[in-house]
Simulated assay, not measured.
Amino acid sequence: MASKQVLILAAAAVVASLAAQASAEVYMVGGSAGWTLKYPSSWTDGKNFTTGDSLVFTYTAGQHTVVEVTGAGFKACDMTGNAMLGSWNSGSDTIKLDTAGRRWFICGVGSHCAQGMKLLVVTTGDNKTSSASLNYNVGAGAAALVAGAAAALLF
Protein backbone atom coordinates (compact mmCIF):
# COMPACT_ATOMS: atom_id res chain seq x y z
CA MET A 1 0.00 0.00 0.00
CA ALA A 2 2.82 2.42 0.85
CA SER A 3 4.44 1.89 -2.56
CA LYS A 4 1.14 2.74 -4.29
CA GLN A 5 0.96 6.00 -2.33
CA VAL A 6 4.54 6.85 -3.33
CA LEU A 7 3.69 6.24 -7.00
CA ILE A 8 0.58 8.43 -6.75
CA LEU A 9 2.58 11.22 -5.15
CA ALA A 10 5.27 10.91 -7.83
CA ALA A 11 2.65 11.13 -10.59
CA ALA A 12 1.14 14.21 -8.96
CA ALA A 13 4.61 15.80 -8.75
CA VAL A 14 5.16 15.20 -12.47
CA VAL A 15 1.84 16.84 -13.32
CA ALA A 16 2.63 19.83 -11.07
CA SER A 17 6.05 20.18 -12.69
CA LEU A 18 4.54 20.12 -16.18
CA ALA A 19 2.00 22.74 -15.16
CA ALA A 20 4.70 25.02 -13.74
CA GLN A 21 6.75 24.73 -16.93
CA ALA A 22 3.71 25.38 -19.11
CA SER A 23 2.85 28.55 -17.21
CA ALA A 24 6.28 30.22 -17.52
CA GLU A 25 6.38 33.42 -19.55
CA VAL A 26 9.06 34.43 -22.05
CA TYR A 27 9.61 38.19 -22.18
CA MET A 28 11.30 39.88 -25.14
CA VAL A 29 13.22 42.69 -23.42
CA GLY A 30 12.30 46.01 -24.99
CA GLY A 31 9.46 44.50 -27.01
CA SER A 32 9.79 44.91 -30.75
CA ALA A 33 12.62 47.46 -30.32
CA GLY A 34 14.74 44.86 -28.51
CA TRP A 35 17.71 45.62 -26.26
CA THR A 36 18.93 48.87 -27.82
CA LEU A 37 19.74 52.46 -26.89
CA LYS A 38 16.08 53.19 -27.64
CA TYR A 39 15.09 50.61 -25.02
CA PRO A 40 12.11 52.12 -23.13
CA SER A 41 12.80 52.55 -19.40
CA SER A 42 9.10 51.87 -18.74
CA TRP A 43 9.24 48.43 -20.40
CA THR A 44 8.72 46.55 -17.10
CA ASP A 45 5.62 48.59 -16.19
CA GLY A 46 2.61 46.30 -15.73
CA LYS A 47 4.64 43.09 -16.03
CA ASN A 48 4.65 40.48 -13.25
CA PHE A 49 7.87 38.49 -13.40
CA THR A 50 7.78 35.17 -11.55
CA THR A 51 10.24 32.36 -10.99
CA GLY A 52 10.46 30.18 -14.07
CA ASP A 53 9.97 33.08 -16.48
CA SER A 54 12.71 33.99 -18.98
CA LEU A 55 14.08 37.22 -20.40
CA VAL A 56 15.23 37.25 -24.02
CA PHE A 57 17.68 40.02 -24.90
CA THR A 58 17.83 40.57 -28.68
CA TYR A 59 20.41 43.02 -30.04
CA THR A 60 23.15 43.38 -32.64
CA ALA A 61 26.16 41.42 -31.41
CA GLY A 62 29.22 43.64 -31.17
CA GLN A 63 27.11 46.77 -30.66
CA HIS A 64 25.64 45.85 -27.27
CA THR A 65 26.05 43.32 -24.47
CA VAL A 66 24.07 42.13 -21.47
CA VAL A 67 25.85 42.33 -18.12
CA GLU A 68 24.24 41.27 -14.86
CA VAL A 69 25.48 43.40 -11.99
CA THR A 70 24.81 44.05 -8.32
CA GLY A 71 22.44 46.79 -7.22
CA ALA A 72 25.38 49.10 -6.51
CA GLY A 73 26.86 48.28 -9.92
CA PHE A 74 23.53 49.08 -11.53
CA LYS A 75 23.30 52.44 -9.81
CA ALA A 76 26.88 53.39 -10.79
CA CYS A 77 26.92 51.63 -14.20
CA ASP A 78 29.87 49.67 -12.83
CA MET A 79 30.68 46.19 -14.10
CA THR A 80 34.13 45.83 -12.58
CA GLY A 81 35.27 43.45 -9.87
CA ASN A 82 32.55 42.03 -7.64
CA ALA A 83 29.86 44.23 -9.25
CA MET A 84 29.67 41.95 -12.32
CA LEU A 85 27.67 38.75 -11.83
CA GLY A 86 27.49 37.50 -15.45
CA SER A 87 27.77 38.64 -19.04
CA TRP A 88 26.39 37.67 -22.44
CA ASN A 89 27.22 38.90 -25.95
CA SER A 90 25.62 36.57 -28.51
CA GLY A 91 22.96 38.98 -29.74
CA SER A 92 20.18 36.65 -28.58
CA ASP A 93 20.55 35.76 -24.92
CA THR A 94 17.95 33.98 -22.81
CA ILE A 95 18.20 34.39 -19.06
CA LYS A 96 15.95 32.35 -16.80
CA LEU A 97 14.51 34.04 -13.73
CA ASP A 98 15.10 31.09 -11.43
CA THR A 99 14.98 32.81 -8.04
CA ALA A 100 12.80 35.45 -6.43
CA GLY A 101 14.30 38.87 -5.86
CA ARG A 102 15.92 41.73 -7.76
CA ARG A 103 18.18 41.31 -10.77
CA TRP A 104 20.01 44.15 -12.50
CA PHE A 105 21.15 44.18 -16.14
CA ILE A 106 23.10 46.82 -18.06
CA CYS A 107 24.72 47.17 -21.46
CA GLY A 108 28.49 46.98 -21.03
CA VAL A 109 29.39 48.88 -24.20
CA GLY A 110 30.76 52.42 -23.86
CA SER A 111 28.40 54.81 -22.12
CA HIS A 112 25.24 52.87 -23.04
CA CYS A 113 24.36 52.18 -19.39
CA ALA A 114 24.73 55.88 -18.51
CA GLN A 115 22.45 56.64 -21.46
CA GLY A 116 19.72 54.47 -19.90
CA MET A 117 20.35 51.01 -21.32
CA LYS A 118 19.70 49.22 -18.04
CA LEU A 119 17.01 46.95 -16.65
CA LEU A 120 15.85 46.12 -13.12
CA VAL A 121 13.62 43.06 -12.84
CA VAL A 122 11.85 42.13 -9.62
CA THR A 123 10.87 38.45 -9.61
CA THR A 124 8.32 36.99 -7.22
CA GLY A 125 8.34 33.40 -6.04
CA ASP A 126 4.84 32.73 -7.40
CA ASN A 127 5.23 30.28 -10.28
CA LYS A 128 1.69 31.01 -11.54
CA THR A 129 0.60 27.47 -10.78
CA SER A 130 -2.63 27.03 -8.91
CA SER A 131 -5.02 24.14 -8.55
CA ALA A 132 -7.51 26.01 -10.72
CA SER A 133 -5.05 26.24 -13.63
CA LEU A 134 -3.49 22.80 -13.24
CA ASN A 135 -5.79 20.93 -15.63
CA TYR A 136 -5.79 23.82 -18.11
CA ASN A 137 -2.00 24.05 -18.26
CA VAL A 138 -1.36 20.32 -18.37
CA GLY A 139 -4.26 19.44 -20.62
CA ALA A 140 -7.08 17.00 -20.18
CA GLY A 141 -5.09 14.09 -21.64
CA ALA A 142 -2.28 14.30 -19.10
CA ALA A 143 -4.69 14.87 -16.21
CA ALA A 144 -6.76 11.84 -17.28
CA LEU A 145 -3.61 9.73 -17.60
CA VAL A 146 -2.51 10.52 -14.05
CA ALA A 147 -6.06 9.99 -12.71
CA GLY A 148 -6.26 6.64 -14.50
CA ALA A 149 -2.86 5.55 -13.20
CA ALA A 150 -3.79 6.55 -9.66
CA ALA A 151 -7.08 4.62 -9.90
CA ALA A 152 -5.32 1.53 -11.26
CA LEU A 153 -2.86 1.59 -8.38
CA LEU A 154 -5.62 1.72 -5.80
CA PHE A 155 -7.31 -1.45 -7.06
Results as ranks from 00 to 15, higher is better:
K4G: 13
K4E: 15
V6A: 11
A10E: 06
A11G: 03
A13I: 14
A13N: 11
A13P: 13
V14A: 14
S17L: 15
A19N: 14
S23N: 14
E25P: 04
V26N: 15
V26T: 12
V26A: 08
V29A: 05
G31N: 01
S32G: 04
S32T: 06
A33V: 09
G34N: 02
G34D: 00
Y39A: 03
S41R: 13
D45P: 11
N48W: 09
S54T: 00
A61L: 03
A61R: 09
T65M: 01
E68H: 08
A72W: 15
G73L: 09
A76K: 15
C77Q: 04
D78Y: 12
D78V: 09
L85T: 03
S87Q: 02
G91A: 00
S92T: 09
I95N: 02
L97V: 00
D98A: 02
T99C: 06
I106Q: 10
I106H: 13
I106P: 11
V109A: 01
S111C: 06
H112N: 00
H112D: 06
Q115L: 08
M117Q: 06
M117A: 03
V121D: 03
T123D: 06
T124S: 06
K128W: 11
N135W: 12
G139M: 09
V146K: 10
A150N: 03
A152Q: 07
F155M: 09
